[in-house]
């Protein structure tokens, strides 16, 4: 994994749905931005936000912020998630398996917790959990219990070894577990609809199987009142239109994809993804 995997690029605004004031916390949790260049870019982005435009993608990676001044919690979380084993060479393209990079997973989870309080003490579901990066991360942030759901038995085998990792004695995420199933089939009893507090997910983006990303969102909203999900920025307009009034783009992030598949011609490529919060009506 390259060192500078992602950066919090910008905080975006969808006009009919302005972001809540807590969003500022996202910035704070990602380290004291002492780097002048980054500060200037943020200023620029803020101005653009006021004008109603979507800010440009930043090019300065977060890992380049000098001084290593990330708050301990976020830094510890990221360090632990670096240890989470992933698909390796066994990733399956038909399932669009791309591991959530540690830095991105840590930022996303930390934001959900510090801005919205939706992890600690909560019952959390991770749909399409794969090897369990987000599942383990949520557990490390104090979730009461986390259940991961995935269709791939190989990924869940790695998940099992991750859940028994003690992360250098910090904590063994024993309060997580996995179910092997098709997320879009009805394996959850209808009386359990709305019982989960929070759904987190890095779903398939729908590149290989059209519409699967939003099917995951719908299942998520059956299980919990709030769903935090990663989506390709290029699909933002479509999603915002489809879930008008029920979704909010919280942040635009850079998702670094290592050379995972044979058809990738470059060693590593960045794609732009949105962290979107979906709510029931």
């Amino acid at each position: 994994m390259e060192e500078a995997t992602i950066s919090i690029l910008a905080f975006t605004k969808h006009q009919p749905n302005p972001p809540p004031p807590q969003l500022g916390i996202v910035l704070l949790t990602c380290g004291k931005l002492t780097n002048k260049k980054i500060l200037e870019e943020l200023e620029l982005n803020k101005k653009l936000l006021k004008q109603g435009g979507v800010p440009p993608l930043s090019t300065a990676p977060l890992a380049a912020v000098p001084g290593g001044s990330l708050p301990n919690l976020l830094r510890d979380l990221e360090c632990c998630l670096e240890e989470v084993e992933t698909f390796g060479t066994r990733a399956k393209i038909r399932l669009e398996q791309y591991p959530t990079p540690a830095h991105l997973a840590a930022c996303v989870l930390h934001t959900i917790e510090t801005s919205f309080g939706d992890i600690s003490g909560r019952l959390v579901a991770d749909l399409g959990c794969g090897c369990g990066n987000l599942t383990v991360g949520a557990s490390l942030l104090g979730a009461a219990s986390v259940v991961g759901f995935d269709i791939d038995p190989d990924a869940l085998q790695v998940f099992e070894s991750n859940r028994h990792n003690d992360f250098d004695g910090l904590r063994c995420p024993d309060d997580v577990e996995a179910v092997l199933c098709d997320v879009t089939s009805s394996v959850i009893s209808s009386r359990w609809h709305g019982v989960f507090d929070t759904v987190i997910m890095n779903p398939p983006f729908g590149t290989k199987k059209k519409g699967i990303d939003l099917e995951f969102v719908k299942v998520g909203l059956q299980l919990a009142p709030v769903v935090y999900s990663l989506h390709k920025t290029s699909t933002r307009n479509h999603i915002v239109k489809k879930f008008e009034g029920r979704c909010q783009v919280l942040a635009q992030l850079r998702f670094n994809i290592d050379h995972s598949y044979k058809f990738h011609t470059r060693d590593s490529v960045d794609i732009s993804v949105d962290l979107i919060k979906f709510c029931k009506k």
Partner: peptide, 19 residues
């Protein structure tokens, strides 16, 4: 599988199964 998870699982994913 914890009993928390057992409590939520159903087999209504099978064709013809209602509950």
């Amino acid at each position: 599988m914890k009993l928390l998870t057992h409590n939520m699982l159903s087999s209504r994913c099978i064709k013809g199964v209602d509950v």
